[in-house]
């Protein structure tokens, strides 16, 4: 069964693109335009897979990841950034991100990684059940 994915990016075109890509691969997708909006959505629903832009007005992706990591420990969170120098891999890992992509990322790469993450979540859930 395909999983629920939350995409957080302040750029509407990016949200729409990733939604289209993931929905066409069978995922159930929700989007948020800011870290604050994402937290409101996460309070109501659980997401095993999450994609965060790093550089957003208001709460940035690093801060959002730190908060979400405590709320959703059994989840996989990816960072997708347009500006790699601003946040480095070290910061991303420290914040709790599982992986890190620099825009423009190929949708094939993204889908492959989401698929791998989805299987990993399945394994984790099998062990806990």
């Amino acid at each position: 069964m395909k999983k629920r994915v939350l995409i957080v990016d302040d750029e509407k075109e990016i949200r729409d693109l990733f939604r289209r890509v993931l929905e066409s691969a069978g995922y159930e997708v929700e989007t948020a335009a800011s870290g604050e909006e994402a937290l409101e959505i996460i309070e109501k629903k659980k997401f095993p897979l999450l994609l965060f832009d790093l550089n957003m007005p208001g709460m940035d992706g690093i801060e959002l990841c730190k908060r979400v990591r405590t709320l959703l420990p059994i989840s996989i969170i990816f960072a997708i950034t347009g500006y790699a120098s601003l946040f480095h891999l070290h910061d991303c890992r420290q914040a709790g991100f599982d992986d890190y992509f620099i825009k423009p990322v190929s949708i094939k790469t993204l889908l492959d990684e989401v698929e791998i993450a989805s299987k990993k979540i399945d394994r984790w859930l099998d062990r806990t059940n």
Partner: peptide, 23 residues
Amino acid sequence: GTICHEFNQPLQVILGSAELLLQ
């Protein structure tokens, strides 16, 4: 840094859209 950040957003949309089209 500014150029990269500003350019990478539309580049992502163009790349992703073209890949979807190819599919």
